[in-house]
Design a protein around this nucleic acid. Sequence first.
RNA 1: CGGGGCGUAGCGCAGUUUGGUAGCGCGCACGGUUCGGGUCCGUGAGGUCUAGGGUUCAAAUCCCUACGCCCCGACCA
Length: 477
Amino acid sequence: MADFLTSQTEDFSKWYNEIVQKADLADYSPVRGCMVIKPYGYTLWENIRDALDRRFKATGHVNAYFPLFIPESFLQKEAEHVEGFSPELAVVTIGGGAELEERLIVRPTSETIIGHMYARWIQSYRDLPLLINQWANVVRWEMRTRLFLRTTEFLWQEGHTAHATRDEAMEETLRMLGVYTDFAMNEAAIPVIPGRKSESEKFAGAVASYTIEAMMKDGKALQSGTSHFLGQNFARAFDIKFLDENNAQQLAWTTSWGMSTRMVGAIVMTHGDDQGLVLPPRLAPIQVVIVPIWRKDEERAAVLEAAQQLHARLKDAVRVELDVREGFTAGWKFNDWEMRGVPLRIEIGPRDVANRQVMLARRDIPGREGKIAASWDGLETTVAGLLATIQQAIFQKALDFRESHTWDVRTYDEFKAAVETGFARAWWAGDAEDEARIKEETKATVRCIPTEQPGGSGVCFYTGKPATEMAIFGKAY
RNA sequence: CGGGGCGUAGCGCAGUUUGGUAGCGCGCACGGUUCGGGUCCGUGAGGUCUAGGGUUCAAAUCCCUACGCCCCGACCA
């Protein structure tokens, strides 16, 4: 066990705080609740961003940028929206040394200002659908913050679309939930449960909210992406109207969806272990690190030359780094790169050079079992194959963990036991008040009503009423 | 905003009870040694002890005030 890192079982929360800093993902800022994302963490975010952006473009969206400042009056146009966000707004009252006529909100999200613009841009059904995404920072004045999971300022993307019909908007809402699901599973290797939010958990101003929920290694749930069907709420508030084919005025139907730097926290807490981070190969800033090993000076030249040649061969295919740092032992470097979560390590020493081979060490399998010898011949193929294997393996491991920490429960007692260590899955027919009571008593909430339902019907574990849907409950971040 | 903890070298801490020369480990610099799982030895640099006020011959230490950070709770992607 690593003595430079608190173990997960000893104190998961402490483990998280330590590894985020020690792996150089982020640091605390001089401003309370804010964080500095360091280059290694930012590269990870860039990879997340690129993988999402590709998917947005592939589904017909374009990027744009809307202002950071929003007139205070805009927020107030949608009653539920302003009520939901007002406690956590940062407000600018002075500009250029003078009191402002109208106070400016630092955006907590951009539905209002984008709604305002959409009203001007949309006149005809021919202008629809309007499919815009923006990459931006937002500010929410949170009471309690944690690096990546909840910070006062965070980075995200927010998609905002407008449609001619209810069905189209709903289709878009679910399409983007599907995009998030695909991203989480195939890029981040995080098994997620897509589903609908309960009334009390839905976005302020939405008709319905959808989410992907992931289970962290401490059994708690992390909402990792959301997609909202806004109905005509914002269209009504901002007067987003268009003329349809029959020359009749119609209100548009809108959606919004977002994924944030919280995803970094999700990756850390889904895959990480007592040695440090375990990054999914597809998103890892460094996929492969080559650690050369030598004993004497005469060995050094041969080993280094071979390592450089392998590095040159691999670098077009994978993100590979050659660790030539002096003054660090090989063992130290092994630990260092493991802490940073690099999926695959190539060790090459004099013995390997003599045999024209390398040792490959998998980050996801600790110790000697994760090491295999591989020939220099076809190393590109071996490495690429192994990275794909690791990607799949850590997904499977996370899925197995979630399934072994999810219980079908029929009674409240079973429920209470389940949410102590993971998720409870149960027939559910309760309302917001029932949910609030459950939360009061157990700290667990409805994480989502999964899109995939078993079908049929059952008896609600809490109210005893007949139920047609199953819900996932858990304690949430 | 309530409860708790903390603020001393870049980082982690001791020293505060009982006021009297500011210390340890890691890191950093240099030299040597080592290198297949966090080498070892030596030398060295580095401090307005969070800030302000008070008590005292004398304050990191006692008193008052302020600020900041972390953790736990109520709100949230």
